[in-house]
């Protein structure tokens, strides 16, 4: 291939021009006017999958009703060490940003957790944000949960802007991501 290219300069120039014309044509042919996807999926760029879940006290939260607020959806369990480790940082940033329109929805994977351990856990860590119970695993399935903790940073339009799988998240990481979804 190179031997031919090196020997024939004119052929090379023609080849470059042909490639560039083909490239430009391909760019025009692949213009996308379909707009953003409306399918909800647990990935950055998609609308966040909706859910309706209850707190241990029975208060109902519907994610789609929180549009206009920046939301951190955190999937966790009481037996998961990194989940426990990141809770104090989440509580701290919740206190700092809640007046700016930020809310944390910490969803306990109750279907694979001890339901009686959730409230004592929240009390032990002094958590003041809503803790929701996924008793059937439906929300875990909608978010295609594969690792705990999993965190979804959702902007005011209800679009997932950032996904952090695994943990614990540091306070600085939380602050940088929250600042982005609050914009």
């Amino acid at each position: 291939m190179y031997t031919r290219i090196i020997m024939q300069k004119n052929q090379r120039i023609i080849l470059y021009i042909l490639i560039l014309i083909t490239g430009a044509s391909w760019i025009v042919l692949s213009i996308d006017n379909t707009g953003a996807s409306n399918i909800a999926a647990p990935q950055a760029g998609f609308p966040a999958p909706d859910f309706t879940l209850k707190t241990p006290e029975g208060k109902i939260y519907i994610l789609s009703e929180l549009k206009g607020q920046a939301v951190l959806v955190n999937l966790w369990a009481t037996w998961c060490p990194p989940c426990r480790a990141e809770m104090p940082a989440i509580e701290k940033v919740y206190q700092d940003y809640k007046d700016d329109g930020f809310i944390v929805l910490a969803i306990d994977m109750t279907y694979q957790d001890d339901p009686f351990a959730v409230v004592p856990f929240a009390e032990q860590y002094g958590l003041t944000f809503p803790i929701l119970l996924d008793e059937t695993g439906e929300t875990a399935a909608a978010y295609q949960l594969r690792s705990l903790p999993s965190s979804y940073f959702i902007n005011r339009a209800g679009i997932i802007q950032e996904v952090v799988i695994g943990g614990p998240m540091s306070e600085t990481l939380l602050r940088t991501r929250i600042e982005q979804i609050l914009q």
């Binding site: 952090v164 998240m169 540091s170 600085t172 990481l173 602050r175």
Partner: peptide, 17 residues
């Protein structure tokens, strides 16, 4: 600004930073 509040996170092993 986020690091000024938590200077120790400069040496955090968190790969997202």
């Amino acid at each position: 600004l986020a690091f000024i509040k938590n200077p120790l996170d400069i040496i955090s092993i968190n790969p997202d930073l």
